[in-house]
Design a protein around this nucleic acid. Sequence first.
DNA 1: CATGTTTCCTGACAGC
DNA 2: TGCTGTCAGGAAACAT
Length: 289
Amino acid sequence: MPELPEVETIAAGVNAQVRGDTIQSVWVSSRKEPFKTPAAELQTGLVGRRILRVHRIGKHIVCDLGYGKRPPQRSQESPPEPPEAQWIVHLGMTGRLLVCDSGAPTAPHTHAVLTLASGRELRFVDPRRFGRLTLRPFAGEPGETSGFRGPGQEPLAITPDAFAKLFHGRHTPIKAALLNQKLLHGVGNIYADESLFRAGIRPRRLAWRLTRAELARLQSSLATVLQEAIALGGSSVSDYVDANGVRGFFQLEHRVYRRTGIPCLACGTPIRRILIGGRGTHYCPKCQR
DNA sequence: CATGTTTCCTGACAGC
DNA sequence: TGCTGTCAGGAAACAT
């Protein structure tokens, strides 16, 4: 399940390969709409556009798109071309965004294929179809000028004060709050469990009852876990691969996630699994209070 | 508004 | 072997 580190890895990989390329044609699956933007609109909106860059916001992959075939001619010193539109890819549970040679065999559950001027293809594959594709003008909302910002705040950029404030007065388990994308975006089940373990906090603790010190610990644990995971190319659970089909290695560093019944690496107590907000939650009953 | 529950979807896996 | 049943989970829609 792609979370922030996986999405970061994919976005960086795609960016390295397709930045500056032009979208020549677009094929979209005719199956039941797996998209936010209707297929026809997606198709006409993407064709002919140039990919200015690909980056990550929360769990979203954002492709900044320029004019393409009719670029306003600019000199070397002029500021970068402003995006005209943004193609936003959310991978859901099982989505993949792959850069392939056009001859490569088409994987099952391929829902969109963008053929690029370089001859390569950008393919969106998603067996479980929880992924979403959206095309929006650069300034999507009225009065907005900066492009897509995502639903919440960046866990790697937020200040300690703002981090603490997010959980103020929240009568919900801290685990549920960490997963709430309107607060922090990018944190999913794996990194919520892993950061709570490293901070020594029980996932069922109510967010508003955490002390300032615990919140500070949680923030730094979360940042550490996310940064380590990015460095290792993400966690390959289920069948996650990056833009080039390469697996990540952070799953080897998991201390609680999907380790139910296995002795805790710190104290030997068996890891416990409970349900919070319908999500499997793993923790050490001794290390986490 | 804030919080909890249901729904979408398919592959993987357990059990017979 | 092959069938059936259960489960995972992000986020939107719906309910409380």
